[in-house]
Computed example of a mutant assay.
Amino acid sequence: MAATIRRERVGTTVGHRGQGPTDVDAYTLDTGAGLAVVVWTYGAQLVEVLVPDREGRTGNVVVRLPDLEGYENRAANPYVGSTVGRYCRCVAGGRFRLDGVEYHLDRNDGDHHIHGGDLGFDRYVWEAEAERSGEVLSLRLRLERPDGDQGYPGALSAEVLYQVSPEGTLTLAYTATTTASTIVGFTNHAYWNLAGAGRIDGHLLALNSTRAVVFDDQLIPLPGPPADITGGPLDHRGLKPVGGLRLDNCFVLDDPDWAARLHDPASGRTMRVVTDQPAVGVYSADGFAGRRRSGICLETGPLPDAPNRDDYSPVRLDPGETYRHRTVHHFSAH
């Protein structure tokens, strides 16, 4: 079966401050070899990832919402499949200092800033351009945000590239440039469920990590280094059942060889994640109202509150530089 790219209109946003009502398109990148993805321009979000099981039956392995209205409803949509930025994860107190200047960000999580603010990247319609190079299909999405947006310094030009290959790989590649020194860290907030339905308790999870960030009761990192988790309940260096374990943690990756593996014994599907980022946030969707534990997030990216932590990998971006982040998902079934 030949590879195809399809585009269709899914609706029009209600509009909000900074962007009026805007048409939203869905792009389907179908390799013709089993793997296909559906991406919407609203939030540059991953809506479907269609993968065959061990019997060759194709199913969607990410949680999706029924319609555009559902994605626009913040109360019902915990960033499902969204591209998250300008800075994913938290910024404690909604503020950080850069070159002696204190910047105050939108506080959308109590006293703190999270996932880019109330009007983060997930709330905008991105410009999109699809392309094909041999058997590889790509969708390039772009968003421009002004200086001062959500409190961040510098006008930012952001781009996310979705790319699929017939070998069963889905690549997400992010880039950004700025007009002034700023902080940047993107991620994708897909909820993975390799069974295609039900709870993720039966999945097996492996993480290439022996350290995890220690949080307070507001999920703000405590002073000090990440904790050694070797031999404890969070030690997932080998495939272990997710079971009823509540996960809302950030794991520091030990090396770049691989980040995570997820396996569903019932369907035989396996997903291996490789990234150039220092950490992966893992969330078992225990707070997803009405769809508790329906998927598991594997959010590759920077460490939480890194803008305020000299002991974490830097997240600064200066004019003339390019922010880069690449994560690859490898799918198989056996």
Rank of each mutant, 00 (worst) to 15 (best):
T12L: 00
G281P: 01
P233E: 13
R9S: 09
Y323H: 14
L68A: 07
S133Y: 01
E127C: 04
Y71R: 08
R292P: 02
Q163D: 03
A227Q: 14
H236M: 10
G232Q: 12
A206M: 06
Y312F: 15
P302N: 14
V242G: 05
E55T: 15
T177Q: 12
V273R: 02
Q218S: 14
L46A: 02
G94P: 07
G287C: 06
D25M: 07
E129P: 02
L29W: 05
L50Y: 00
G110H: 07
A206C: 05
S332V: 06
L204M: 12
A75C: 00
E48L: 03
R123Y: 06
T177L: 03
V136W: 00
S165R: 07
V91H: 02
G116I: 11
H236C: 09
T187A: 13
A259P: 08
E135Y: 01
D30E: 00
Q150Y: 06
V61L: 13
V136S: 08
W40A: 03
N108L: 05
L139V: 08
T169A: 10
G290N: 12
A266K: 09
L204V: 01
C297M: 10
E48F: 03
E144T: 06
V38C: 12
G15H: 04
V164R: 05
P278C: 04
P233A: 12
L207N: 06
R292N: 08
T169F: 02
G56Y: 02
Y87K: 05
A36R: 09
A279E: 08
N60R: 12
A176V: 10
R292A: 14
R17E: 12
A289P: 03
L239K: 08
T22H: 06
D257F: 02
Q45I: 06
L204A: 02
S181I: 02
S332M: 13
L105M: 01
D109A: 14
A212F: 09
H236W: 09
Q277E: 13
P241I: 00
R9N: 03
R211E: 15
S209F: 07
D25V: 09
V328Y: 08
N193R: 11
E135W: 01
A26F: 00
R211I: 02
Q218E: 15
G20C: 02
S181R: 15
T178M: 06
L298H: 13
F96S: 04
L46V: 07
G85R: 04
D235S: 10
V160I: 15
H113V: 04
A128T: 10
D23M: 00
H203E: 09
Y71K: 04
R132I: 08
M271G: 05
R211P: 07
A266V: 11
E159F: 00
E321W: 10
T41A: 06
V61H: 13
R7F: 01
I296C: 13
E135A: 15
G196Q: 08
L29K: 09
T58L: 13
T31F: 00
V39H: 03
S138E: 14
L143S: 06
H330S: 15
T270Q: 11
P314L: 08
R237V: 11
A206D: 06
E135R: 12
R132L: 02
A3M: 04
T22Q: 10
L119Y: 14
E131D: 15
R272A: 12
G243C: 08
R272L: 10
